[in-house]
């Protein structure tokens, strides 16, 4: 399957949101998941594990998703980061793209959009 053995990091303070995202992704293979419940943990895990794809929420304790994106991009400018948030305002979208995010998905989660993100990045892998 397309995602077998891929490394995917999910940063979201909601354990439910992380589970829902994992459940959708598991339909396309069996990747190695890493989970973070705040932006700082996401940055730390990224530096240690170098995942192939990162999903980050914006509103998180300790460090928000946009700040975490900036820090990850400074460390690795090739990082593939997708923001998944309920706060899809134009300014947040702009901030996410400026920080280096490659995509923005508005919550509630839509399996088709997640699939699109996965195929865009993993097709032909």
């Amino acid at each position: 399957m397309i995602l077998d053995n891929a490394k995917i990091l999910i940063g979201d303070d909601s354990i439910l949101a992380r589970k829902q995202l994992k459940d959708i992704i598991l339909g396309y293979g069996e990747p190695i998941f890493y989970e973070a419940s705040n932006g700082q943990d996401a940055v730390d895990i990224y530096k240690k594990e170098k995942p192939d794809l990162v999903f980050l929420d914006i509103v998180m304790p300790v460090k928000d998703g946009n700040a975490a994106t900036r820090e990850i991009m400074e460390y690795d400018s090739d990082a593939e980061i997708v923001i998944v948030s309920s706060v899809g305002t134009q300014s947040q979208l702009k901030a996410a793209i400026e920080a280096g995010a490659k995509d923005f998905i508005q919550k509630p989660l839509n399996a088709d959009l997640i699939l699109h993100v996965i195929y865009t990045r993993f097709e032909g892998r």
Partner: peptide, 12 residues
């Protein structure tokens, strides 16, 4: 999650 989603959509 419900509260966060509602408030996020409100901000949007």
């Amino acid at each position: 999650d419900f509260l966060n989603l509602h408030n996020g959509l409100f901000n949007v």
